Simulated assay, not measured.
Amino acid sequence: MANTSTVARGAGSSPAPGHRRNKSGRAARPSGMPNWSIPYLLLVPGLLVIAGLLLYPMFQLAVMAFQKVGLAQIRGTRPAEWVGTENFQKILDNEIFWSALRNTVAFAAVAVSLTLIVGTAVGVLLNKLGKKMSLFVVIGCMFAWAVPPVAQGVIWRSLFDAESGIVNWALNLLPDWLAAPPAGQESWTGTPWLNDTIPLYIALTVCVVWAGFPFIAVSVLAGLKGIPAELYEAAKVDGSGAWHTFRKITLPMLKPVFAVLTVLSIIWDFKCFSQLYVLMNGPTNRDGFNLSMYAVAEAFKPPQKLGTGAAISVVLTIILLIITVVYVRQIVKQEEM
Rank of each mutant, 00 (worst) to 15 (best):
Q67W: 01
G309S: 06
Q334E: 15
M64Y: 04
A297P: 01
I267E: 05
G212I: 03
V296L: 01
Q330F: 14
G12S: 10
A211T: 07
L320Q: 13
L204S: 12
A8N: 09
S158G: 04
V7G: 00
L279T: 07
W243G: 14
F97M: 02
Y277S: 15
F215L: 14
F300A: 07
S219I: 06
L116Q: 13
K255T: 14
D176T: 03
A180W: 04
V138G: 04
T85C: 07
Q185F: 10
S292N: 12
P214N: 03
L159Q: 06
N127W: 09
P34T: 12
G70A: 03
N290M: 04
I198M: 14
L316F: 02
L42G: 04
K128M: 15
G165K: 06
W36T: 13
A100S: 11
A311G: 06
A242S: 15
G123M: 09
K236D: 10
E230M: 05
G140W: 01
V220N: 08
F59S: 15
M1W: 08
A162F: 02
A62Y: 01
A203H: 04
I74A: 12
K23R: 12
G288E: 02
K333W: 03
R329L: 12
P15I: 07
R78S: 05
A106I: 13
V332T: 14
A65L: 06
T205R: 09
F246K: 01
N103T: 06
V118C: 13
Q330V: 14
L126G: 08
Q73I: 02
G307A: 02
A80C: 05
M64S: 11
P34A: 14
A151K: 00
K255P: 01
E186F: 01
K255I: 02
R21A: 10
A109F: 09
V328Y: 09
A211R: 07
V154H: 01
L71S: 03
A62N: 03
L42Y: 03
A259W: 04
S219Y: 03
S99L: 05
S134N: 08
T197K: 09
K90M: 13
V257K: 11
V49R: 05
K271G: 07
S113F: 12
V278H: 03
A259I: 10
P39H: 04
N103L: 02
L47N: 02
I198G: 13
I249K: 05
W156A: 14
M253H: 15
G212Y: 03
V122H: 13
F300S: 05
V118P: 09
S99Y: 00
G223T: 01
R157A: 10
Y294K: 05
F59I: 15
Q185N: 12
V315L: 07
I202W: 06
V315F: 04
S187R: 05
L135G: 15
A2Q: 11
T324Q: 13
C141M: 02
D287G: 15
A144P: 09
L54H: 03
G70S: 04
I266V: 14
